[in-house]
Computed example of a mutant assay.
Amino acid sequence: MTECAVILAGGQASRMGGGDKGRLMLGDRSLIDRVIERITPQVDAVVLNANGDLSRFDDLNLPVVADSIEDFPGPLAGVLAGMDWAAEQGYDWLISVAADTPSFPRDLVQRLGGYDTPVVLAATPDPERGRLPQPTFGRWQVA
């Protein structure tokens, strides 16, 4: 079984005034650098999903794929772009993570892999609404 990851950085960050949220600094390193460091040991390959001028991510030394759906429809468009890339590369599973959330578990892939379903989404507990699925963190069967 082969797994790759897509780092979702394709949003417009409109609630933060625009720009690349993943480039914000946390201490002495950017959020996206921390995400790359955390996800890379867990998978066979990593691809970045972004929109606009993709060359602005050349320094990360990762393949970069843009949404195939116009007008920034949300994180699932980035998952789709990652799935298309994963299928072209022959991967069985795609792990999605957000570029601006570097503190996910160091065993995220293992945790998400413990279910016999084609899609597993991470969830956060909410005392009033129960468990809330978080599609930016998931495991997606490429087939």
Rank of each mutant, 00 (worst) to 15 (best):
C4T: 07
C4P: 03
C4M: 15
A5T: 07
A5Q: 07
V6K: 03
I7K: 01
L8C: 05
A9T: 01
A9N: 10
A9Q: 09
Q12S: 15
Q12W: 09
Q12D: 15
A13N: 15
A13I: 10
A13G: 15
S14Y: 04
S14G: 01
R15H: 11
R15W: 14
G17F: 04
G17L: 05
G18A: 07
G18N: 09
G19D: 09
K21H: 05
G22R: 04
G22N: 07
L24I: 00
L24P: 03
M25R: 15
M25H: 11
L26V: 04
D28W: 05
D28I: 00
D28A: 13
R29W: 02
R29H: 08
I32F: 08
D33Y: 00
D33L: 00
R34I: 05
E37G: 04
R38Y: 00
T40V: 10
A45K: 14
V46W: 02
V46K: 02
V46G: 04
V46S: 04
N49D: 08
A50D: 12
A50L: 01
A50Y: 06
D53P: 01
D53R: 06
L54I: 14
L54D: 11
F57V: 01
F57M: 00
D58N: 13
D59K: 11
D59N: 13
L60Y: 10
L62K: 08
L62D: 07
P63K: 03
V64L: 04
V64E: 01
A66M: 10
A66V: 08
D67S: 08
I69L: 14
E70L: 07
D71H: 14
D71R: 13
D71Y: 11
D71K: 12
F72G: 03
F72V: 02
P73C: 10
P75D: 14
P75L: 12
P75N: 14
L76K: 11
A77P: 12
L80R: 11
L80T: 05
A81W: 02
A81P: 01
G82F: 00
G82L: 04
M83V: 10
D84Y: 03
W85F: 12
W85K: 00
A87L: 07
A87N: 07
E88M: 02
Q89M: 15
G90P: 06
G90W: 06
G90L: 06
W93G: 05
W93F: 13
L94K: 10
L94Q: 11
I95D: 08
S96G: 12
V97N: 05
A98Q: 12
D100N: 10
T101M: 11
T101L: 10
P102Q: 11
P102I: 09
P102V: 08
P102L: 09
S103C: 06
F104H: 11
F104I: 08
F104R: 03
P105V: 05
R106P: 07
V109K: 02
Q110H: 14
Q110G: 12
L112P: 07
G114V: 00
Y115A: 13
D116Q: 14
T117S: 14
T117P: 02
V119M: 13
V120Y: 02
L121Y: 01
L121R: 02
A122S: 15
A123T: 13
A123Q: 15
A123Y: 09
T124H: 14
T124N: 14
D126S: 15
P127R: 09
P127C: 01
E128M: 07
G130S: 13
G130E: 12
R131A: 15
R131H: 10
G138N: 04
R139I: 09
W140F: 12
